[in-house]
Amino acid sequence: MYKNSMRLEFPASSDNERFARTVAAAFILELDPTVDQLSEIKTAVSEAVTNSIIHGYDNEYGSVTMEGSIFDDTVEFVISDDGAGISDIRRAREPLFTGKPEMERSGMGFTIMEAFMDSVEVESEVGKGTRVTMSKRISG
């Protein structure tokens, strides 16, 4: 029963999107992922982190946390913010729904996370923040 974990906290600025997904990719390397699995994990993490920056903090000051854990051949990432929160999580997760149509968002972030990870859980409270937990089994 092998286990590893990490925690990363960074300011909500758009250049940290790349930083976070690169760290996520490095963290799962020990599981020997395929190129496609790496790309899927990077994309899903990027979606969650970008959401915290754009929607959680409205591109203003704030802090985003990414926690990763590995248990056997499964990786879990938790991305959380203390931002605006989501009032209707079910609607937010619908494909093509966006709360910011004026910003040229496609409303595909959650749909992509769901497609690329095995499970995606969203907890949120308006005015408190949002926490997205997603996991994926990596088998070579």
Partner: peptide, 13 residues
């Protein structure tokens, strides 16, 4: 080498 939904939104726009 990498694109996420922000690229989709940019192209849609």
């Amino acid at each position: 080498t990498f694109m996420d939904s922000s690229g989709i939104g940019m192209i849609m726009g």
